[in-house]
């Protein structure tokens, strides 16, 4: 589909883009070997809930925002929308009346209404979904923006000021759906031993599991940098470059761990001390700079069981929405 075909349909004008607003879905597979990471929504559960609340396909194109979201005005349309996450937002009606936004409950936007996504609270990411989704550009079966390789929707860029965000064709509104959901806090990030676990001194391993680390400001969709006690490497501070996956915790020579997140470089050369379990990934990505983080070592079988639990929980939440 060509954008020009959509010119007469509904779109948002971006008045303020927010800090990092991108279109995302469930991410893309099978391209690590050419240097293209997974990308996709950082907090998968909140992304899925947003689409389910509108009766969308679960992998529909949604808008992900970080910290501060966009302020945008709807033109030529009337749409059902929903916001998930822990988010403060307002709907500014055409007549200047302000409706305070409620997350996890869909609402209707009319022609000329503005949506002001003020901030995520004690979390990083939130999701805005629209009935039938945003107009995404697909490459390798995903519309997810990857700003590094400049692929996906919006030419692989985050949204800027004065841009237009187009919506897919949309003839009906969604029934009112809501759910009571609160994002659970996590005491520990659970990890498995990394493939270079034995590069580190006994003291360093003890330090890694008994101390708190602080999430650094240098954290984005590519990686989360941690500050805290130094992790001493006895063997080598560089390894031959090899593949990475999201959740891998690398420790470079300076001793400060870095956790690979969804837009990570596909190859890396620092020793891997640990890997975050799949069940804890969503909650990990929601940790804001300044948050304290503590790691707990688990066995593979436990990680697999925890993932089953995570999946059952997600399914139960989605099934509650009708």
């Amino acid at each position: 589909m060509n954008i020009s075909n959509l010119m007469n349909k509904a779109y948002f004008d971006i008045i303020r883009p927010g800090i990092h607003s991108t279109l995302q879905d469930l991410g893309r597979n099978n391209q690590y070997h050419i240097g293209i990471p997974f990308s996709g929504s950082m907090d998968k559960r909140n992304y899925l809930i947003s689409n389910k609340l509108l009766g969308n396909k679960l992998n529909e194109c949604s808008l992900e925002f970080a910290y501060q979201g966009p302020l945008m005005k709807l033109n030529f349309g009337k749409v059902s929308a929903v916001i998930t996450g822990n988010v403060t937002f307002n709907i500014i009606r055409k007549n200047s009346e302000i409706d305070k936004g409620i997350c996890y409950q869909n609402f209707i936007l009319n022609d000329g209404d503005k949506l002001d996504i003020i901030s995520t609270n004690r979390s990083v990411y939130g999701y805005l979904s629209i009935k039938n989704g945003f107009f995404g550009e697909y490459i390798w079966n995903s519309c997810s923006v990857n700003t590094k390789a400049k692929i996906g929707s919006n030419n692989g860029e985050k949204f800027g000021v004065n841009q237009k965000v187009y919506l897919n064709e949309n003839k009906s509104l969604s029934d009112l759906r809501k759910i009571n959901y609160s994002n659970s806090k996590i005491e520990y990030i659970r990890v498995l031993k990394g493939t270079n676990f034995n590069f580190f001194s006994e003291e360093a391993k003890k330090t890694f599991f008994s101390n708190e680390f602080t999430v650094s400001k240098l954290t984005d969709r590519m990686g989360m940098r941690l500050e805290g006690p130094n992790i001493e490497n006895l063997k080598e501070t560089n390894i031959r470059s090899e593949g990475l996956i999201k959740g891998v915790i690398q420790v470079p020579a300076d001793g400060n761990p870095i956790i690979m997140l969804s837009d990570h470089g596909t190859i890396g050369g620092y020793p891997k001390i640990a890997v975050v379990i799949s069940a804890d990934y969503d909650r990990l990505t929601q940790l804001t700079p300044g948050s304290k983080i503590k790691f707990k070592l688990v066995e593979l079988s436990e990680a697999e069981n925890l993932f089953k639990l995570y999946e059952i929980e997600t399914e139960n939440i989605l099934n509650q929405i009708r």
Partner: peptide
């Protein structure tokens, strides 16, 4: 979902 070759891994 992905296969990543490198020098020796």
């Amino acid at each position: 979902t992905n296969i990543t070759p490198s020098y020796n891994k």
